[in-house]
Structure formats: C-alpha cells, structure tokens
Design a protein around this nucleic acid. Structure first.
Lengths: 240, 240
DNA sequence: CCTCATTTTCGAACACGTTCAAAAGTTATC
DNA sequence: GATAACTTTTGAACGTGTTCGAAAATGAGG
C-alpha cells in the first residue's frame, strides 16, 4: 500500500490535484445531476411527492446511486435549504443598504425570509416533518445547518449594527440570536397558517415589529433594563 | 346464544343494553386489546420501535384489524396522549389544593407536565415527528386534540383563578392560553434537551417563572399595562 | 497490455405504514 | 330456521425510504 510513498521527490503537490479533480469531476457531475433533479422536483412537487426513485430517474441514475452521494432524503432537502438561505441573503443585502431605521431593517430580514419561503407553503408540512428529527441535518440545531443558521443570524446582526440608532452593546450582542429564534417560530407559525397568502403571519409579524419598536426605548429606562436583560438571557438560553 | 332473550318481562330497559353492549363489547374488547398493546409498547419501546405489525401481534389480531379500529398509527399515539393528559390532571389537582401563590401554582402545572413527559424522553424524536404533521390528530391545533388541549388550558386557568392574589380580569382571561403556549414550547425545548435528566429544561422553567413573578407587578403599573396587553394579544393570536 | 485496488453504479431486498378485496362471523328480518 | 345485510377479521399487496452485496467503470503500477 505504501510502496511508492515518497517516490516523487519534487513538486508533486500540484500534480496530485488534477487527477483527483478529473476523477471527481465525473462524480461531481453525477452528484450535481442528482442534486438538481431533487431540487427541481422539491420546488415543483414538494417533499412527499418527490420520491427517491422518481428523482433518481429524473437524474438518469439508479436508486442506489443517489444514496451513494446523499445518505438520506433529508440531506437532499438540506441542499435546498442552503439555496434558500443564500437567496435570502442576496435579497436582503441590497435592501439593507437603502434603509436606516432599526426596526425597518429587522423587518426587511423577516419579510424577505417569509418571501423566500412562500413558494413552498403548500408543501410545508412535508418539509416541516423532515426538519424536526433531531438527527436530521435539517434540524436547526444540527451541526450541518449551523452554517446556514450563521447566515441568517448574520443578517440580523447586520440589520442591527448597521442601523442609524444603535443599541447598548450588551443588547446588540444578544439580539441577533434572539431575532433568529423569532424567525424560527415565525416560520413554524407560517407553515400552519392556512389564511389567504398567509396574511395572518404577515399581520403577526407587523404587530410584533410594532411592539418591538414601542418597547425599544424601555431599554434605556434604568429600572427596566435589568429585567429586560434577564428576559433576553432566558430566551437566548432557549436558542442554545 | 340468545335463547332466553326477552324471557324477562319487566325492566327490559336494562336488558336492551346488554345485547348492544355485548355486541360492541366484543368489538370494544378487540379495540381495547389493540389500544393496550400499543400503549404498552409505546411506553416500553417508543414510537419507532412500535410497528403496526408487532403491536397487532401483541394484541393477538391481524395487521388489517388494527387499521379497522385506528385509521393511523398516529391515532394510537393520540390514545397515549389522552392518557398522559389525564395523568397530568390527576397529579396536579391535589397539589393545587395545597398551594396559594400564583406563580407557585403555575409552576406546579408546568413541572407536573414535564414529569409526565419524563418517561418518554428517549423516544421524544419519534413522537415529535408524529406531532408536527398538520393532518395528524396529534397536532396541537387539530380538532382531535382540542379536548386534550382543553384539559391543560383548564389546569392553567384553575391555577390562576384559584390563587390568593388575583389578576385583573382582562389578564386572567388571556393568561391560560398564553401559559399553554409556553407549555408547548417548553415541551419542544425539552424534547431536544440532551442534558442530564433534562436539567436545562428545568432551569429554563425556573428562570422563566422567576421572571414572570418579577414582571407581575408591572401589570398594575398604569403606563405598562397597555403594552403588556398588546403583547398578550400578540402571543395569544399566535396560539390561534 | 495486463493486473488489481478503488471508486462508482446497479438493482434486488428489507421493513415499514397503509390499502383493499374478500372471507368469516354476527345480527336482523321474514 | 333460512336468508339477507351488517360488522369484523384477514392476509396479500402497494409504494415508500433505506441497505447491501456484487457488478461495472476507472485509474495506478508493473
């Protein structure tokens, strides 16, 4: 196994890459075909109607081959999840540049997040189901989605630190995680929202933001600051 | 079998019942056998390891027969859910008689609720998964579980209205639904809590109750009352 | 060009929840 | 009591996600 170890004496570092690249390029193409077929079908037919068999056929590979690249159907949803996160960021960033008010900026992140979700509402139950399994990569607390989570938390952080009116540092530090938790709950609410175009969720968000706006000055009232901080700590603990 | 039916000429009211009772009694016995086998297996082996086949075998009936009485595996979990709710009420009621403090009473309901859940923690993921499907009877918002929900909400209402220190009516009215929503979220947190004996959840509850206790006087402060009411309305709206 | 080890691909197989048509059992009616 | 209508019970079957052993393709070393 180690017969030729150290055989090349010079510059072999760069030589090793191409073969492994071309080797993986074929594999990468298969992988991409599976991924694309899955994402397309998820968007068109939802989670339940996208079976591993149908998706493998769409990709032109065998069932077993799909499992060679993705250990689980949920891992394929994870790919969709990542794509949605990136679209969220892409949609939010230009709009943040044109806004200064703190609550307005936070609202942008929330509302764009819901907008990204919108196309999937009719399939929400299936996806939701896939998300709650603690061992699923989709679980918001799983290591696999920590990167995706960081994207959203980052958006909230940007919304807060880039605002005209700044918060005290101790609050600025805690708020992003808190808002992310709110986003998670809002999404949960959204997935159960059967009202037309999920208007209830939109209204809930509006009211929540209005309340937040009204509550913000309380942060600077001395005798309210301490309890508010404990409240934040409490909820932050819940968000892990 | 019914040779002597109608032999008794008087008091036939009670006689009529037995036939219809015995007719359903056979069926009821099958139903109970299935239900019992399911609940025992859920307790011992959890949701995933309890298959419809194994449970049917335990009950001494065929697979198809189990489906004659329970349209879905989730409907069998629903039976377990009801049993747990009733145990919750039975555990809470005597303790409420011996307590007067508002927060203390609310704490009793929360803590007993968690205690009822405790034996199932290792199986929580499977059950959780069954709960989130919007069409599942286990879904907290489903019509099938509205009765079970009423039990818990009722416990919170009892804890509040039976306390030494009463709340303003408008708050007393909204609090039970709110506390129930808190209970739901606490259970969710609990199911993901991997700490020893779910101490984190216990701590979260303690802190939450402490905070609630500190916040209660604020209800009577005039200029805090209005925003607190909107907050309650907001969260109540979320609870449907 | 020929090994042979590794990577990739395949399709059969498994256990599961659920459905269904038909058999068996039970009850009501004449 | 016989026949019809019903409730209850059965076991085979379907489609699903996932696993697995073996076949095919690929690449490296002689």
């Amino acid at each position: 196994m180690f017969e030729n170890e150290g055989a090349e004496t010079s510059g072999d570092r760069s030589v090793k890459v191409p073969p492994s690249e071309s080797r993986s390029s074929k594999a990468e193409r298969t992988r991409a075909a599976i991924r694309d077929a899955a994402l397309r079908s998820f968007r068109e037919n939802g989670f339940d109607a996208t079976t591993m068999r149908s998706l493998a056929q769409d990709a032109g590979v065998s069932l077993g081959n799909a499992y060679y690249y993705f250990p689980t159907k949920n891992h394929l949803v994870q790919e969709l999840y990542i794509e949605v996160q990136q679209a969220h960021r892409a949609a939010v960033e230009p709009r943040l540049k044109a806004s200064a008010g703190l609550i307005e900026r936070v609202g942008i992140v929330y509302r764009e997040g819901l907008a990204q979700l919108a196309p999937f509402h009719s399939f929400a139950p299936g996806f939701l189901n896939a998300m709650v399994a603690p061992d699923s990569p989709l679980n918001p607390l799983s290591p696999e989605s920590s990167a995706a989570r960081e994207i959203t938390v980052g958006l909230f952080r940007e919304a807060i630190t880039g605002a005209r009116n700044r918060l005290p540092p101790e609050f600025e530090e805690r708020m992003p995680d808190l808002l992310w938790l709110g986003h998670l709950q809002l999404s949960l609410y959204w997935s159960y929202d059967r009202s037309d175009e999920q208007r209830r969720t939109a209204r809930l968000l509006d009211q929540g933001l209005r309340l937040l706006k009204a509550a913000l000055p309380a942060i600077r009232t001395p005798f309210l600051r301490a309890p508010l901080r404990s409240l934040l700590d409490l909820v932050a603990e819940a968000g892990m």
